[in-house]
């Protein structure tokens, strides 16, 4: 066990603990905040694995935008302070599937990579990632931009108030 291993394990524990809290807390907004902890810990894992650029993208997009959007939605849908009662379905199928996926994959990884060791990664990967994105992967990158645009338009269309022609003209004067 090197220092990096210990750090990886500790941060991994934080991530898993955060994840457990996300799926088990009965307080809606707290779930979003625990998600910040879990995603932040994953970002630190990225850092330890030498993926500096991916780590900061994770912080910028996930913590700065996605979680904020989620919290925003939770608050707009009138989340109470304190526990909510009807958040959960029956546990049994979820536990079965979750445990099977999680523990099964974990067992698989331990079995395959149990004693595998690799040299510590070099930091400073932004340039290499740039080369890769705009070299080999430039076509998927462009497709992705179209997807983002479509998502943007879709979100705007969905969240706009109902179009005026849905209500009859006589009743529409109340606005």
């Amino acid at each position: 066990m090197t220092l990096q291993d210990v750090l990886l394990a500790v941060v991994g524990l934080v991530a898993v603990a955060g994840g457990v809290a996300v799926v088990s807390t009965r307080q809606l907004v707290r779930a979003g905040l625990w998600l910040v902890v879990a995603l932040g810990a994953v970002a630190v894992e990225f850092l330890l694995l030498g993926a500096e650029f991916a780590a900061w993208v994770q912080v910028l997009i996930y913590v700065g935008a996605v979680v904020v959007l989620l919290l925003f939605a939770v608050m707009l849908t009138r989340a109470p302070i304190g526990p909510s009662t009807d958040l959960d379905r029956p546990a049994l199928p979820a536990v079965l599937v979750g445990a099977a996926a999680g523990l099964g994959l974990a067992a698989l990884f331990v079995g395959v990579f149990g004693q595998f060791q690799v040299p510590s990664p070099a930091v400073g990967t932004a340039e290499r990632i740039g080369d890769a994105v705009f070299g080999d992967w430039v076509l998927p990158f462009e497709v992705l931009s179209i997807l983002l645009l479509a998502a943007l338009v879709g979100a705007i269309v969905l969240s706009r108030p109902s179009a005026p022609q849905e209500t009859p003209v006589a009743q529409g004067s109340s606005r």
Partner: peptide, 11 residues
């Protein structure tokens, strides 16, 4: 870690 997170997400 990733496997456990995935399991938690599925759950």
């Amino acid at each position: 870690t990733a496997a456990l997170l995935f399991g938690l997400g599925a759950y």
